[in-house]
Design a protein around this nucleic acid. Structure first.
Length: 332
DNA sequence: ATGGTTTTTACTGCGTC
DNA sequence: GACGCGGTAAAAACCAT
């Protein structure tokens, strides 16, 4: 499950400016869910019902696809190739509590033709059902999973996170369950933590505040549970890279590619000089975006950046001074 | 629990449009 | 005069111990 399978792009990326204008014109009748943003450029995501995809209006990134299963995604150009590629059955997925592989036995005492069963058969079916049920939702764990995965899905949608993040979150939750981390902790809290962790690991981090926004538990609990889960599962999540926040902020502020690039440069430079350490990555990113806007003569205000990054203006000021110092300490 | 560090809140002064 | 910006002090939040 490489990143590449999810990084498909459609022709929507052509002209950034016209795309945005069109979008503004049809402001009221857009069908996209509010808050669904592109993980790469933070542009608004528009649903394309016909193709069953959600596409970023800015860069054309396909954020979500296959709402409708339209058959094989591959094409075969000769018989041999077809044999190679061919496979059967729905793809398994970690977002269903039993990976979509369970069997369901009908509750009616009828055979496949609708005729009712004899007494012997009925007994047999009852036994089968009983056992099947025991396996399917083997114990409370499985039922937990079912609920948690629903929550994960809900939150990921609300945050506009791509499918691979959901998958990752699901996997983490599974592991948490297997290692008996749940007792004493709420399903909500743990699943929220999984989403948070998964987003960070996928390089499309959301701040704790953003996460808490869509979760049903308080930020404190999410933070606590998150630490716990990471520690126990010894997930290796590096401290969030400030650069990863830049695209989202930059595009929310409608800044040019140039500024975005500049902001990343500033951050990279600062990183080498070790200016950051103990400073919040989000703050750094916000400051870099602001500083970059200044350097490229684009109008933005500290207030605006503060708004989209959810960081106080004071922090932005402090950080961006440091960033600029580090910069001409090297360049000049 | 505690102490050190970072972030936020609130307020004030300065220059400009 | 409102706005953007900078600075400061004190409170709050955060983190490691």
């Amino acid at each position: 499950m490489s990143e590449h399978t999810h990084t498909r792009r459609r022709s929507g990326g052509r002209d950034r400016r016209t795309a945005r204008e069109q979008q503004d014109e049809t402001e009221q009748e857009r069908t996209d869910d509010e808050g669904l943003v592109c993980p790469e450029c933070s542009g608004n995501v528009i649903r394309d019902e016909e193709h069953g995809e959600a596409v970023c209006a800015e860069c054309g990134l396909v954020v979500e696809e296959d709402s409708v299963d339209r058959g094989p995604e591959w094409r075969a150009f000769d018989a041999a190739e077809k044999d190679q590629k061919s496979r059967v059955g729905a793809p398994t997925t970690n977002t269903m509590h039993d990976k979509g592989l369970s069997t369901n036995i009908d509750w009616r005492d009828q055979d496949a033709y609708g005729r009712s069963l004899g007494a012997r058969q009925r007994q047999k079916m009852r036994r089968l059902r009983k056992w099947n049920e025991r396996f399917r939702t083997r114990d409370s764990k499985e039922r937990n999973l079912k609920q948690a995965l629903g929550e994960i899905d809900r939150m990921a949608s609300a945050l506009g996170l791509p499918d691979n993040v959901r998958e990752t979150a699901s996997v983490i939750y599974r592991r948490a369950l297997d290692e008996d981390l749940l007792p004493g902790r709420s399903i909500e809290g743990v699943s929220t933590s999984c989403v948070y962790a998964a987003a960070r690991m996928a390089g499309v981090p959301r701040s704790l505040d953003e996460i808490a926004e869509v979760s049903r538990v308080e930020k404190e609990e999410v933070a606590r549970t998150y630490r716990y889960v990471v520690r126990e599962l010894k997930l290796e999540v590096k401290p969030a890279d400030p650069e990863q926040y830049v695209p989202r902020f930059a595009s929310s502020l409608e800044l040019s590619e140039e500024s975005e690039l500049r902001a990343k440069q500033l951050l990279r430079n600062a990183k080498e000089k070790g200016v950051h350490s103990g400073k919040s990555p989000v703050g750094l990113a916000a400051a870099a975006v602001y500083a970059a806007a200044l350097l490229t003569n684009e109008k933005t205000t500290q207030a605006a950046v503060s708004e989209v990054a959810d960081i106080s203006e004071v922090t932005i000021r402090n950080r961006y001074h440091e960033l600029l110092e580090a910069e001409d300490g090297l360049v000049a």
